[in-house]
Design a protein around this nucleic acid. Structure first.
Lengths: 342, 342
DNA sequence: CGTCGCTTCCAAAGCGCTTTGGATTTCTCA
DNA sequence: TGAGAAATCCAAAGCGCTTTGGAAGCGACG
């Protein structure tokens, strides 16, 4: 059942049927109802391809990532992606993923996507400090939005959380509790958020005149494994340098730290304090840690949903101001933090 | 730059240019070269929308999953998905994901996708024992392929691994080593693969007259957590019932078992043997276990790649026989298995 | 009664590609 | 050399939708 068939069946023109279905004002409400009923009855669905060709809009959003950096293995990314797909379905959009591999560079993928008009907009995740993709997309005129921020000069649309504020709050809590040797287990500093977090951390310490000691600052992938490795190293420092508190960039890292602490019979919340940033994944919760974990928390899934909302908003009103949102982050105090021991 | 512009520029008809670019035989190789060069030079890309409309093919494959069962949190699924996207990009296809949520049932998503011709084919992952999606897709005429098998009667295209054979081999190794109390930590038996694995396991034990004791058979989600839980329970059985070997359905489960064994000072490969099925994920490797893990292994990423290949093959030659592939699974013996302790 | 202004509907022109059904040229061989 | 076959190219008809630019119908107002 296509538009022509439906319209002859209704003894109306295609124009009228199309307008009735798409909510245009210049059609009588009575006929609109009649059209809608008939469409429903015969299970009419407009052909996506034809509509795309006619409107130039594809009704799809794109997510591209390099093959080497297979982000599908990263739970943070997949949770974000899940949020995107969720919201996109809600708003009638599809999400397509493409992988740039081998000789086909990521840039090529973008260029091709633009020329062949496969997607209406792109979602960029975990940007680098200076991310070439942004300038590229701007130059070729592909709408996009960033999850996270970057150092590129020109203004760009983004949604980010207040990483600096979050880590400031967390570090302040620790200094307020009397800690002076605080370890920061950060993510890789090629990413902006890691630098933001470090800044917040340093500011809080500086406010109390506490030294951000180099041996207590690490920057690694945010896995459980690196959590254990780094924690082990730090706990083997001479007692006078050994950290009494850990601030981790992810829950898995905190898991690693916890493991090491347990192995050394350090009681978390007493002998050593532990805070982590909690992205609120489905399968790992700060509150089910033992003891429940003090955490800065912000749902990365919700961020995905919101990013899609913003992206589609931009597509619908291209002239509106660029969306630039920074979400505050809550610090939830649980049992893993306590006053510095003895 | 569109086809018309390019063709007037070349002083050829659109027909010829189109045919030259798409490799049709009825065009002179010299002109084909000329056309290709010009297309390259001017960066011509055919409009995906127009091509879709003209051919009726969308150049996209679809993956749908219910929101409740957010498979994006499952590393097995994402590894599989990564393989799909990888191979699809290679073959010039896109992969779009849709999530069925709320009132919009999964069925609706399929129906809509079909009518609006958004995707050429669907990829179904982790099917249930009797999966309604298969009959549905057949009925509405949407091409599809299954990763895994199911009990539906009518023939359907699929790619699966030989789960039964794999677990037969693994269990046989253990019985050959003299084990008589072997634990099976299986996945949920709503899935076909789990039942296949159990069958292989039972056969191997029966062949040696070994009893498949009910207290040593479990069926849970394949997480590290359930691995520890189940292993702990089983190791608390009276000595005469306690397992001397564990056969796990996933590496994370084996991790859980390992943890419990360590806690009890059981040496893996000596006091207790451990085998797991290894889907060859990026972030978890049987060979880097301590000790290196004996495993049945089969790359789930490769399966994703192959599934896409088969799907596209079906689209190109709809009349060919339904692809039905079962991959053999290797058993790789490492240090985690040994003769039963005196 | 004629005209203006709304409301309601329509014919037809694209969107950019593929593909059918020739037309024209070139080649082959008697 | 000429006729048929083969190679090469082309004009035009869709694919199914949106959208432009009117046209027709109808009541109201001077």
């Amino acid at each position: 059942m296509n538009l022509r068939e439906l319209s002859t069946l209704l003894k109306l023109s295609q124009t009228t049927v199309s307008r009735a279905l798409n909510g245009f004002p210049e059609v009588n409400e009575a006929t609109r109802a009649r059209v809608k009923a008939a469409a429903e009855l015969h299970g009419y669905r407009p052909s996506a391809a034809a509509r795309r060709l006619a409107t130039g809009q594809s009704g799809t959003l794109g997510v591209v990532f390099p093959r080497e950096r297979n982000m599908l293995g990263d739970l943070l990314f997949t949770e974000f992606l899940g949020g995107c797909v969720d919201q996109a379905s809600e708003l009638g959009y599809d999400v397509t993923m493409a992988m740039a591999r081998g000789l086909v560079t990521e840039e090529d993928v973008y260029r091709r996507a633009v020329r062949s008009a496969r997607v209406d907009g792109m979602i960029l995740s975990t940007p680098l400090i200076a991310d070439p993709r942004i300038d590229l997309l701007r130059d070729i005129g592909m709408p996009y939005i960033l999850h996270g921020r970057t150092r590129n000069k020109a203004p760009y649309p983004f949604l980010d959380i207040d990483n600096e504020g979050a880590f400031f709050k967390a570090a302040k809590l620790l200094t307020d509790l009397g800690h002076t040797r605080i370890a920061l287990l950060n993510g890789l500093t090629i990413h902006n958020y890691a630098q933001d977090r470090e800044r917040g951390f340093r500011t809080a310490l500086a406010n109390k005149g506490v030294d951000a000691a180099a041996p207590l600052m690490s920057s690694t992938m945010m896995t459980e494994e690196s959590g254990t490795t780094v924690a082990r190293q730090m706990l083997e420092l001479p007692p006078a340098q050994r950290p009494t508190a850990f601030l981790c960039s992810s829950l898995p890292m905190a898991l690693g730290v916890q493991k090491v602490a347990h192995a050394r019979n350090l009681r978390i919340g007493h002998d050593v304090s532990l805070i982590a940033h909690d992205d609120q994944l489905h399968e790992l919760h700060a509150e089910t840690f033992d003891p429940p974990l003090t955490a800065t928390q912000s749902s990365i899934g919700d961020a995905g949903r919101r990013v899609v909302e913003l992206m589609i908003g931009m597509l619908r009103e291209p002239t509106a101001a660029l969306p630039q949102e920074v979400w505050p982050v809550d610090l939830v105090v649980r049992a893993s933090t306590g006053a510095v021991a003895g």
